[in-house]
Design a protein around this nucleic acid. Structure first.
Ligand code: MN
Ligand code: MN
Ligand code: ZN
Ligand code: ZN
Lengths: 160, 160
DNA sequence: AACAAAATGTGGACAGAGTCCATTTTTTAC
DNA sequence: GTAAAAAATGGACTCTGTCCACATTTTGTT
């Protein structure tokens, strides 16, 4: 109720109920989609427009307050863990997304073998695989992929 | 006129004019989008439906004949360079995409610091930066980003 | 070469994610 | 408290990609 306010003020961003609620929602649901965050905010303050969600998340990402990741096959996801240049590990079957610490820390953490004259500022790494739940108990692939909706505990949205 | 045919036959995929044309189009335009490939095919054989494009590219990716990459902020891109697990370097300003050799070769080429019980099969790496053209001559950022359309030589689509 | 079954291609409706825009409401600065 | 600036709203719209029913082409078998 004041921490988020301070963050917005510090960055010169006008403080609104929608922004505060979004910031709280992201804090509670790392790697959530814009849509999942919108629903979370609606549950808390009643209503927020799709546009306010996108505008706010966009602004917060620009200011470096949030981080946006856009894995293949998924809408964008947002998280409050910024500044540590960590990476992600995503289940191909159910979409479960977990953080993976970067051993280097600062970005870009990898060096490209040839830079083709580019000035490289980031090395984005996504590890793809199958999560423990989607693996059979013996490590074999289960019959059908676990549907994302079957899965998430807090929301009935694709998990994480 | 026979190489692509052989590839399809080898994988048990029925040979159609659309598939042959798509395969040629991808060969000539690495990292092109489905839409750009559709236009290229239309220029060559007159017409192809959007659905045939998506179905065929999907099948070819499944069979390992093509590779699909889905960088943030871009529609999917396709390339015929498969089996070498190379990575990509993308210009944030204009979208120019170039291959970066993987020093390891086989995938997953990176080890995650903790696997959280996942069975990891791929480490996807995208280097983000600014291409030589989008950098000023002294390395300073230009005033405005170069629009993708201003850029590509062969097509008037977003480059590479 | 001709045929039937299987697989593809086609066009058009539709869906998901995100953007644009005019208008209304809220926040900020004085 | 007021006025200017910034955000929020909601609805139209765009861009990628998918679904579906039906027409056409490929295959592989006579
Ligand atoms: Mn994360
Ligand atoms: Mn490539
Ligand atoms: Zn899973
Ligand atoms: Zn560029």
């Amino acid at each position: 109720m004041f921490n988020s306010t301070a963050i917005l003020r510090k960055h010169g961003i006008p403080v609104t109920a929608q922004r505060l609620a979004l910031l709280r929602a992201v804090g509670a649901r790392p790697h959530a989609t814009a849509d999942a965050l919108a629903e979370a905010v609606r549950a808390e303050i009643g209503t927020i427009s799709k546009q306010a969600v996108y505008n706010t998340l966009g602004t917060l990402v620009e200011k470096g307050i949030l981080r946006r990741i856009q894995p293949a096959g998924s809408p964008a996801r947002y998280e409050g863990r910024v500044g540590d240049n960590h990476h992600h590990l995503i289940c191909r079957s159910c979409g479960k997304t977990v953080d993976v610490a970067c051993v280097v820390g600062e970005r870009p953490c990898l060096r490209a073998s040839e830079d083709s004259g580019f000035r490289i500022d980031e090395a984005e790494v996504i590890f793809w695989g199958t999560c423990p739940r989607c693996l059979g108990k013996d490590g074999a692939q289960q019959a059908g992929p676990v549907k994302p909706q079957d899965f998430c505990e807090q929301t009935n949205k694709p998990p994480n």
